[in-house]
């Protein structure tokens, strides 16, 4: 099933809690939540990841009345799943250390922040900006694009990337530094959007 934008009529059906619409929406949102619940830099078990994804979907269905577009819905799904997975990871780590510290971030907190900043509008911007960044990296050509993705998404070190591609570490550093400076320049052209997205980005970053 293509992860396309659904039309307003479909969103209206979701708001009316029509089961067929939600059946389709959950089917499309689940892979998004699953992706949000995972990250190259941490590994939840598949069971935990599924649980996080389900929690995200349930939470989104509860917040549907505040959402206007499919982009907002998918962005919020991803954000909640990401934050939930971070919380779960912290909890697991705390348990492993025998700590009783509750390091989790509550969904209520996320909801409050979203509401306070009218962040739902930013969700559309998040989609646009993510597409822009992905396009710019794609435009770097190979192997630069792969190197940058490995650095940004997979958290690989300069040394690891250099060894993977058989390149000097200076070349890797230059490629990555150049790409990030280019991305920085690009997104700085839309400072208003960046400002609106600060909250989302902060929520997404560990």
């Amino acid at each position: 099933m293509a992860n396309n934008d659904f039309p307003p009529a479909f969103i209206a059906q979701l708001k009316e809690n029509q089961p067929p619409a939600w059946r389709e929406a959950f089917a499309v949102l689940y892979p998004i939540a699953w992706q949000g619940a995972g990250h190259a830099r941490w590994r939840l078990s598949d069971e935990d990841r599924e649980e996080v994804a389900m929690e995200a979907l349930a939470e989104v269905s509860r917040q549907i009345s505040a959402l206007k577009t499919w982009r907002e819905i998918s962005a919020l799904t991803f954000v909640i799943a990401r934050r939930r997975s971070i919380s779960r990871l912290r909890t697991l780590l705390a348990q492993k250390r025998g700590s009783h510290t509750n390091a989790t971030v509550s969904l209520e907190e996320i909801g409050d922040i979203l509401q306070a900043t009218e962040g739902m509008q930013a969700a559309g911007g998040l989609h646009e900006l993510a597409g822009t960044v992905a396009g710019l990296i794609q435009g770097l050509g190979e192997p630069g694009a792969t190197m940058v993705r490995e650095f940004l998404q997979e958290g690989k070190s300069y040394q690891e990337i250099a060894e993977l591609h058989g390149k000097p570490i200076g070349t890797v550093g230059t490629v990555i530094y150049r790409a990030i400076q280019q991305l920085k320049r690009e997104v700085s052209r839309t400072p208003k959007l960046m400002k609106e997205l600060q909250l989302y980005l902060r929520l997404l970053v560990v």
Partner: peptide, 13 residues
């Protein structure tokens, strides 16, 4: 940027 790329990838999933 990593988070944005993750989200972009998730949207394609």
């Amino acid at each position: 940027f990593g988070a944005l790329l993750d989200y972009h990838r998730a949207r394609q999933a």
